[in-house]
Design a protein around this nucleic acid. Structure first.
Lengths: 148, 148
DNA sequence: ATGCAAAAAGCAACATAGTTGCAAAATATT
DNA sequence: AATATTTTGCAACTATGTTGCTTTTTGCAT
């Protein structure tokens, strides 16, 4: 057993993530962060309200997500169906500086949205006069869990 | 004067576009299509409600946009701010078969969203197990009208 | 541990966005 | 011009998001 910090208690991980972000650790923040950590996909506001049950006020969910985005714990993923999705920033991203260079994948079959952290956004050659500050790529198709 | 069909009356153009799409030409459809034709950018539902003034019921705007999307007259553009934008499909797209291979550009300065019809979406190499059906690229930056 | 200041949660009320069913009006068809 | 069909507009409703304020919880210092 070389190292065991990946066995680290999830609650401890959550608490330290919050503290590192200058957020006081409250029940709603722990709970919502838990939801993100226990599954691989992205979550929309509605998903969280549902999963959290009657536990929190809607306003609390809004404010919590907003705080997480501001602190770089989660990031938003654009959609064409008027429902922002949020996903955990990966370790090297949550550190403070957003990388934001990965693409997003929406599965037509299961409906989940995943960050493909290993797939880097391509260079886009724009027409004369246009300057790119940021490139967002969303690929839609069938994910590896749904294929076959 | 070789050809003059590009001088064609805009109302005639609108009417034929609607007929070609099996839509009866009504005042709201003509008016809303007019809004799209007279400017280069994309429009959100809210923009249309404002630009059309008190002219139409909100419901009519929803239904009109929905019909236009179904018929391939306009297409949606994903955003990260919970506001679907709609843009005219270009000539070769409106013909019936969506091309959908162009990218979208959101200007940080003027806020407009444009279709860059000449910029084709790149090939994205996905991890094993993932299959891509469609790729959506949104570039954010400064457009050619706002630069300098 | 206890008390206190600061932050967050919860509540209520509100504002905006989107949907549905139906009657009235406009459009297409003959 | 008359009628069948489609679309519009209205009303009522659901869902989504926001704001101000009071109560509760958290973090901190004693």
């Amino acid at each position: 057993m070389p190292h065991k910090h990946h066995t680290q208690d999830i609650e401890t991980r959550i608490a330290s993530l919050l503290k590192r972000s200058d957020l006081s650790v409250t029940e709603s923040r722990r709970k919502i962060l838990h939801l993100f950590l226990e599954q691989p996909g992205a979550l929309a506001h509605g998903d969280i309200e549902k999963k959290a049950g009657e536990k929190f006020d809607r306003v609390t969910v809004y404010r919590t997500l907003q705080a997480f985005v501001e602190k770089g714990i989660i990031h938003t993923i654009p959609t064409a169906d008027n429902s922002i999705r949020y996903a955990l920033c990966k370790d090297d991203c949550a550190g403070g500086h957003h990388h934001d260079h990965h693409i997003h994948f929406v599965c037509d079959s299961c409906g989940n949205t995943y960050c493909l952290d290993d797939v880097v956004t391509p260079e886009i050659k724009l027409p004369k006069g246009y300057t790119a500050a940021h490139v967002e790529v969303v690929v839609e198709g069938v994910c590896k869990n749904c294929k076959g």
